[in-house]
């Protein structure tokens, strides 16, 4: 893996989150409490502020540190959820150089951590509706293309789901017809990772 991978992921993630703050806010205002955009922005800006300190680390420790930063800085449920995701992924990422099997294994650990932290599974109109299909997709022949498609489809599938977890579950049937904001931010981050790995950014 490229030596500056940590830096490129860090820089692109914050740019993309900030570019979509309004969209995340609007989605969250529809079925949540409207703070998801700002919470994610605060979390990723805190990661940005780590700068060189983060970039000097290899991917595993860097993900753990970024995850802990999200936990401490986000202020909403997405902090522990994304934080646990990155921390579990980073902890499992021990291979050097990182093999594809290592990566898939660590992604699986991350997804398991989100399930545990959120006491949830796919189908409840949450970020897991993107992450679970993406995890299934990365074993395909063209993992990045498959992951992009799985993220898009997974996100779109949340539109017609009834929320049974998180704040949106208070709305019950009325949550149907809206994309889930957590699934949207997850899809966004999957895109970031694919773009960086493909050298598009």
């Amino acid at each position: 893996m490229a030596p500056d991978l940590t830096r490129r992921l860090r820089e692109e993630a914050v740019v993309r989150i900030i570019a979509h703050v309004d969209e995340l806010t609007a989605l969250d205002q529809a079925i949540g409490d409207g703070d998801h955009g700002f919470n994610m922005k605060r979390g990723f800006e805190a990661i940005t502020a780590l700068g060189d300190e983060l970039d000097a680390l290899s991917l595993g420790p860097a993900l753990q540190k970024a995850g802990m930063t999200l936990v401490m800085k986000v202020g909403g449920a997405s902090g522990p959820l994304y934080g646990s995701f990155l921390m579990a992924m980073g902890k499992a990422m021990t291979g050097d150089p990182l093999s594809r099997e290592d990566f898939v294994g660590s992604l699986a650990e991350g997804v398991a951590a989100v399930k545990m932290r959120g006491k949830s599974e796919a189908g409840a109109k949450t970020m897991l509706d993107v992450l679970v299909p993406v995890l299934d997709a990365v074993t395909a022949d063209d993992p990045l293309a498959a992951a992009r498609q799985a993220a898009r489809d997974g996100l779109e599938a949340t539109r017609n789901m009834k929320a049974t977890k998180g704040r949106a579950s208070f709305l019950g049937e009325r949550s149907i017809g809206h994309l889930d904001p957590g699934a949207r931010s997850s899809a966004l981050l999957v895109e970031v990772v694919c773009d960086v790995l493909e050298g598009k950014v």
């Binding site: 703070d35 605060r42 936990v71 401490m72 800085k73 986000v74 202020g75 909403g76």
Partner: peptide, 13 residues
């Protein structure tokens, strides 16, 4: 009570 910026939310620290 309050998030790390002082808005509504909670702060792990």
């Amino acid at each position: 009570g309050g998030d790390p910026s002082g808005g509504l939310g909670t702060d792990v620290a």
